[in-house]
């Protein structure tokens, strides 16, 4: 493992109750590199992230981590029980005994200054995601791990969030492992895409992957590409404004050209 490698996962397989969740997956994240895991629900994306983080042990395979690696982790959801009164500021302070100016900086960076004194349980999905991102940043991470950061965020917010993530990489010079269930939104920000469905279907640069037969089969069976976008947004169909389809069309034609 050379100096630039943050995490190297080798031939990972995971089996739970005799069900194969992950099959022989290798994953490497280098400094300042954005790696995106995409795949349908149940593809094992979160399991792979948890293995990389050392939260669960793989059935076979090994994970090597750079010595003393500081990881900022943004979990898929944070369920805050209403019975617990805790402010955003306090939540951030708990991270690494951060001081006030560190907290202000982190909240400012994710565009959440106004949430300083809000109660954690009262935040909207998007606000909570920003606060979680701020907490991950406070650790001055060398690696940011973001599990479906755009979940529960409306479409405008999603584009903004991904822009923010790409800014963060440039500013903090950290590696990023990103989990997403759609490619087009993260496309511009990503260096390497791994398309996952229990095994690695395909991987490479985003443009490469979006034209890969395995990717198209996984996401675009209905043959039209726009339809693939649609099936993809199934969970959020109520959020889907016309704007996003235009955007998608534009970015596609860029790649075709």
């Amino acid at each position: 493992m050379d100096n630039q490698t943050l995490i190297n996962a080798d031939n990972i397989s995971l089996e739970i109750d005799q069900r194969q969740i992950l099959n022989n997956i290798s994953l490497q994240i280098n400094a300042e590199q954005i790696v995106t895991l995409i795949g349908p629900n149940g593809a094992g994306k979160t399991s792979l992230v948890k293995i990389a983080l050392g939260l669960i042990k793989p059935t076979t395979g090994s994970v090597e981590t750079k010595k003393g690696l500081r990881i900022g982790y943004m979990p898929q959801r944070l369920h805050i029980d209403q019975s617990m009164p805790v402010s955003v500021e306090r939540f951030l302070k708990l991270a690494v005994n951060a001081n006030n100016s560190e907290i202000n900086n982190a909240l400012g960076e994710v565009g959440a200054d106004s949430l300083h004194h809000s109660q954690l349980f009262s935040l909207s999905g998007g606000e909570l995601q920003r606060v979680l991102l701020a907490r991950a940043l406070i650790q001055e991470p060398q690696l940011l791990v973001l599990d479906e950061p755009a979940q529960g965020v409306d479409v405008n917010g999603q584009a903004e969030l991904y822009r923010l993530i790409s800014d963060i990489r440039n500013r903090h010079q950290c590696g990023i492992l990103l989990v997403s269930h759609d490619l087009h939104l993260v496309m511009s920000a990503t260096d390497e895409v791994i398309c996952l469905n229990q095994h690695v279907c395909c991987h490479g640069h985003p443009e490469q992957v979006s034209n890969d037969p395995a990717y198209l089969e996984l996401f675009g069976k209905k043959d039209a590409e726009t339809l693939a976008v649609y099936t993809h947004h199934h969970n959020h169909s109520h959020d889907l404004a016309g704007g996003i389809v235009d955007k998608e069309g534009k970015s596609r034609s860029d790649h075709d050209g």
């Binding site: 983080l53 939260l55 979990p75 944070l78 939540f91």
Partner: peptide, 9 residues
């Protein structure tokens, strides 16, 4: 608040 977050930290 979050067990896995705590563990990663």
């Amino acid at each position: 608040l979050h067990e896995e977050l705590a563990k990663v930290e």
